[in-house]
Computed example of a mutant assay.
Amino acid sequence: MPRGDKSSYTDKQKRQTAHIEEGYEKKGVPKDEAVRRAWATENKVSGGGKKTGSGRKHDK
């Protein structure tokens, strides 16, 4: 998957990112920086795109 490809994210993650981006723009952050920060924030919260497979680590 090429860098920047958002196809592995769920619709919910994409909606949340758009909402986060709006918040940054209201604070006066430039559009491109707001987009970058919004995706970084979503990755921090959710751990990235869709996760599948039986070998995934489970945090308890």
Score class of each variant (00 low, 15 high):
6 K>T: 15
19 H>P: 01
30 P>N: 14
20 I>F: 00
15 R>F: 04
59 D>C: 01
12 K>G: 07
53 G>L: 05
36 R>D: 05
55 G>K: 03
1 M>S: 08
21 E>Y: 08
56 R>L: 06
12 K>T: 05
52 T>S: 04
7 S>K: 13
16 Q>L: 12
21 E>L: 03
39 W>M: 06
44 K>E: 14
42 E>V: 15
31 K>P: 00
51 K>V: 11
8 S>C: 11
14 K>P: 01
27 K>I: 02
26 K>H: 06
32 D>Q: 09
58 H>N: 03
11 D>R: 12
6 K>L: 15
11 D>H: 13
48 G>Q: 02
14 K>N: 08
17 T>R: 14
14 K>Q: 11
42 E>I: 14
17 T>P: 01
58 H>C: 02
22 E>F: 01
14 K>T: 07
26 K>I: 05
34 A>K: 04
58 H>G: 02
37 R>M: 14
32 D>N: 13
9 Y>F: 15
25 E>K: 10
42 E>Y: 03
43 N>K: 14
48 G>V: 06
20 I>R: 02
56 R>P: 00
26 K>N: 05
14 K>A: 13
15 R>Q: 13
12 K>A: 15
33 E>C: 01
51 K>Y: 06
11 D>K: 09
12 K>I: 09
26 K>L: 10
14 K>Y: 05
24 Y>S: 03
17 T>Q: 09
36 R>A: 11
42 E>K: 11
19 H>F: 07
45 V>W: 01
10 T>G: 13
14 K>D: 07
24 Y>V: 07
43 N>C: 14
14 K>I: 09
22 E>W: 05
59 D>E: 03
9 Y>V: 04
29 V>A: 01
3 R>Q: 09
14 K>M: 12
